[in-house]
Amino acid sequence: MQFKLIINGKTLKGEITLEAVDAAEAEKKFKQYANDNGIDGEWTYDDATKTFTVTE
């Protein structure tokens, strides 16, 4: 399945997509990506659109 991450950071904004088996795997990958890029914020997930959002 394809999942999307919307980044609303203080210095980094944008979207990325990835393939994952389920939402838990996608969340783990997205949070690792955010951590690697210094993004720390409030996370939400919309199951209907398979979209994660992180807002700093």
Rank of each mutant, 00 (worst) to 15 (best):
D47K: 10
T51W: 12
M1K: 05
N8I: 14
F52I: 02
A48D: 11
T53I: 08
T51K: 04
I6V: 12
V54M: 06
K4T: 11
T44Q: 12
Y45S: 03
I7K: 01
I16M: 14
F30K: 00
G14H: 15
G14T: 13
T44A: 14
A34W: 02
G9K: 07
A34P: 01
L5G: 03
E25W: 10
E27F: 04
T17M: 06
G38S: 05
L18G: 13
D47V: 09
T55H: 05
G14P: 15
N8C: 03
L12D: 11
N35G: 15
I39S: 02
N8Y: 05
N37I: 11
N35R: 08
F3C: 01
E15T: 05
E25Y: 14
V21C: 05
T11P: 06
E15N: 04
T17S: 13
D47H: 09
N37R: 07
N35I: 04
N37T: 15
K31C: 02
E27V: 03
A26L: 00
W43M: 07
D22A: 11
T51I: 11
T44R: 13
F52R: 00
N8L: 07
E15L: 02
G9M: 11
T53Q: 07
K13H: 14
K29N: 07
E19N: 05
V54A: 06
V21D: 09
E42I: 05
A48G: 10
E56A: 03
V21A: 14
K29Q: 10
E19G: 11
K50M: 09
I6N: 03
I39P: 02
E19W: 09
A26S: 03
K31I: 09
G41L: 01
G9Y: 08
Q32N: 14
D40H: 11
T17H: 13
D40M: 08
F3V: 01
I39L: 09
L18R: 11
K28Y: 09
F3I: 01
T17V: 07
A26K: 00
T44H: 14
K4D: 04
L18I: 12
F30V: 14
N37M: 10
A23D: 09
T55M: 05
G38L: 07
L5S: 00
D46T: 11
E56L: 04
D22T: 07
K10V: 15
E27P: 00
A48R: 09
A23S: 13
E42V: 05
K10N: 12
E25D: 13
V54E: 00
T44M: 06
N35D: 10
T11W: 07
V54W: 02
F52V: 01
T11N: 15
Y33D: 02
A26I: 01
F30M: 04
G38M: 14
T51G: 09
I6L: 10
A34Y: 02
K29F: 15
M1C: 04
L5K: 00
T11H: 13
K10D: 12
I6F: 15
N37C: 03
D36W: 09
D46A: 14
V54D: 01
G9C: 03
E42T: 10
A34C: 04
Q32R: 05
A20S: 11
K29C: 04
K13I: 12
T17P: 15
L12N: 06
M1R: 13
I39H: 14
D46M: 09
E25F: 12
K10E: 15
E56W: 05
G41I: 01
N37K: 10
D22E: 07
I6P: 00
I7L: 05
K29H: 07
E56Q: 06
E25Q: 10
K10L: 10
T53D: 02
D36E: 03
L12H: 10
K31G: 03
Y33T: 04
A20F: 09
K50T: 05
N8G: 02
K50F: 15
A34Q: 02
K31E: 03
Q32S: 07
L12V: 13
K29T: 11
E27G: 07
I16N: 12
E27Q: 08
T55L: 04
N8T: 11
M1L: 11
T49I: 12
E19Y: 14
K4S: 06
A20Q: 06
A24Q: 12
M1D: 08
F30N: 01
Q2C: 04
Q32K: 15
D36I: 14
E25N: 14
K10I: 11
A48W: 12
D47A: 10
Y45F: 08
T53E: 14
T53W: 09
F30D: 00
D46L: 09
D36H: 14
T49P: 09
N37H: 07
A48P: 10
T17E: 08
T51Q: 13
A24I: 08
D36T: 08
K50N: 11
E56G: 02
T53C: 04
E15D: 08
Y33H: 10
K31N: 10
L5H: 00
Q2M: 09
I39K: 01
L18E: 12
G41C: 01
N8H: 09
I39Q: 03
A26E: 00
A34E: 02
T51R: 10
G38E: 12
D36G: 06
G9A: 13
A48T: 15
Y45M: 03
M1P: 10
T17I: 09
E56T: 02
N37S: 06
I6K: 09
V54N: 02
D36M: 08
Q32C: 04
I7A: 14
K13N: 15
T55G: 02
K4P: 00
A34I: 09
F30Q: 00
G41K: 01
G14C: 04
K13D: 10
Q32A: 08
D46R: 13
Y33R: 03
Y33L: 09
T55D: 15
T51D: 03
E27M: 15
Y33C: 02
K50A: 08
M1E: 13
A20P: 01
D22I: 09
G9S: 13
K13F: 07
K50S: 15
D22H: 10
Q2D: 03
I7H: 14
T44D: 15
F3S: 00
K29E: 09
E56P: 02
